[in-house]
Amino acid sequence: MSATEENSATEKDSATENSSADEQDLGPEGMTRRQLLRHTAWFGSAVVLTVVGGEVISHVATPDAVAVPPEDPNALRFAQISDSHLGFKGAANTAVEDSFAAAIRQINALPQRPDFVVHTGDLTHLSTPAQFDQVKQMMGELRTGKVLTVPGEHDSVDDTGQKYRQAFGAGSRGDGWYSFDLRGVHFIALVNTLSLEKLGHLGADQIEFVRTDVAGLSSDTPIVVFSHIPLFAMYPAWGWGTDDAAAVLNLLRRFASVTCLNGHVHQLFTKTEGNVTFHSATTTAYPLPPPGQGTAPAPVTLPAGKLKDALGIREVTYRKGSGLLAVKDVRLA
């Protein structure tokens, strides 16, 4: 089956596609059509699964998104890593520090140095001073212009984020949120892991910050939003959503292109709602089950040798005037 068919099969309400395919012809990676549809349904619309040289897991196939040529000096380039969980000791990954080091090496080996690297939270597993120290030292090895972070709930286990802000909060506002502009793109980094409301929560102060922050921006400014917990309802029963995200998304509705990058769910997932595209990133530590598979989002121990297939880094590029950002997810080497 062609890439185009995959894509059209998962457009919009992809849930309805799960039961519609009975064909047993094998698609890529030996999956039946039904399995593939189920699989791609979780990746959502606008993404075509591709495997090139065993590395690229997915890239956005939207016509507007053009991968920037490597030689373009004016292009925006950044990398996203997420959910490194330094300090985790479990069968799902007995060496999360090694995996994180591998992700850092992979970013440092990119042909072009990224403008910045953003870690979208759960830097540590249990917010201990030693874990914060270690993750900060390791990210100091990144060859990039700047290292950015947003906190995960594992980074604020017992102090509503005080140790996190001590380590990474310089220059941020409120509970650790901030915004900046780079190469024609406006970036907003949000904190939705501190107020405990079952789901992720932003709070009135942060929503007001976004309102003021975007007020003066032209509607054709591309917007990129970082958060740990998804800003869309990926699976609320496991806390994979943000209860007041709609307030922020409404403020961003007038913009032509909004890209929301999150972590938390330890797996790739992409979804488009109007002008907004959401991209959940994978982890550098250990996979979690697909939404609703099993009773809880507990770490999944994969068969020997399979772990690296579930881990990865994300490269994002953008050239001014080219519409959408190009998002490429790459397996851990």
């Binding site: 079952k198 869309f232 309802a233 609320p236 709609a246 709602e273 809880a296």
Partner: peptide
Amino acid sequence: QRIPIATAGLALLAACGTTAPPAAGP
């Protein structure tokens, strides 16, 4: 935009101790 967050989120009151819904779809 269709943002199902609010309805889905409000329906979620104390899901602990209950069985997660089957993996039938998003």
